[in-house]
């Protein structure tokens, strides 16, 4: 099970980091904020945050508690920045004219930073020990993460509905319509997985070794990586299947 989880995590990290890096390159060309926010979010989460958090324990075992703490701090900073970038993306793309979105984004950022600080300040020097403060901090962080993912999923599904109606009138590209659905599905599963992990931690499971959370994160990681891949790096065959020959050629 551990091997499956490691393979799934590696696949997730590779897809997320590749998609994020390619989007950051696009942002460098277009100088537009949405690709900067989303590329930054995916790259920081999959390419920096996850690897550092996963590697913190073996690093700690090899080089001592300070090194472990440093790796966790770096990983948490990347994950919190990635969350903030995702909130900014959703606000900028879907709700730029909304009055409630801006305070909501900054409230989420404050909550995530506070939760991250609680986690960092309560990590014990004994490996394997999970303190109440860590549980609380990770729970809050996961909740902010799930909320952000849920928000962007909701907006994507809502916009997908609108785009389907446009498609019926010949006013939308079927590939772009499908992209909203894929992105929404990936985010919805990410958010639900974060909520399920809160449940696992509350139930007292060790999420790094218990088969239930390992199985959950493996399946979810593969599904989410697949959604990101098809949304942002779709192969020609998939584009042809979704949009037909003409749309695939244009894309």
């Amino acid at each position: 099970m551990l091997l499956v989880a490691m393979l799934a995590t590696t696949a997730f990290v590779l897809v997320g980091a590749t998609v994020g890096a390619r989007m950051l390159l696009l942002a460098a060309r277009t100088r537009q904020l949405p690709e900067l926010y989303l590329g930054g979010s995916l790259f920081l989460y999959a390419g920096v945050g996850q690897p550092f958090v996963v590697a913190s324990r073996p690093l700690g075992a090899a080089f001592g508690f300070e090194v472990r703490l440093f790796a966790v701090a770096l990983g948490l900073a990347a994950i919190i920045s990635s969350m903030l970038a995702l909130y900014l993306f959703t606000w900028h793309v879907f709700r730029s004219d909304s009055k409630w979105a801006e305070p909501f984004v900054w409230l989420a950022a404050c909550a995530a930073i506070l939760a991250g600080t609680v986690v960092l300040s309560t990590i014990p020097s004994t490996p394997g020990l999970v303190t109440q403060g860590m549980k609380l901090g990770i729970g809050c962080l996961s909740l902010v993460f799930a909320l952000g993912m849920g928000w962007t999923a909701w907006e994507s599904f809502r916009y997908h509905g609108m785009m389907r109606r446009r498609l019926a009138l010949g006013l939308a590209d079927p590939i772009v319509v499908n992209r909203f659905l894929l992105w929404g599905c990936g985010c919805a599963v990410t958010g639900l997985t974060a909520l399920a992990m809160i449940g696992c931690v509350s139930a007292g499971f060790n999420v790094a070794t218990h088969p239930a959370p390992l199985m959950l994160t493996s399946v979810a990681g593969i599904f989410i990586g697949g959604c990101w891949y098809l949304t942002f790096l779709p192969p020609a065959g998939y584009l042809h299947w979704v949009g037909g020959a003409d749309a695939a050629q244009q894309a």
Partner: peptide
């Protein structure tokens, strides 16, 4: 949103 998602799919 649709202009953004059209762009993002062509990243790279």
């Amino acid at each position: 949103p649709d202009a953004v998602f059209a762009r993002l799919g062509g990243a790279g």
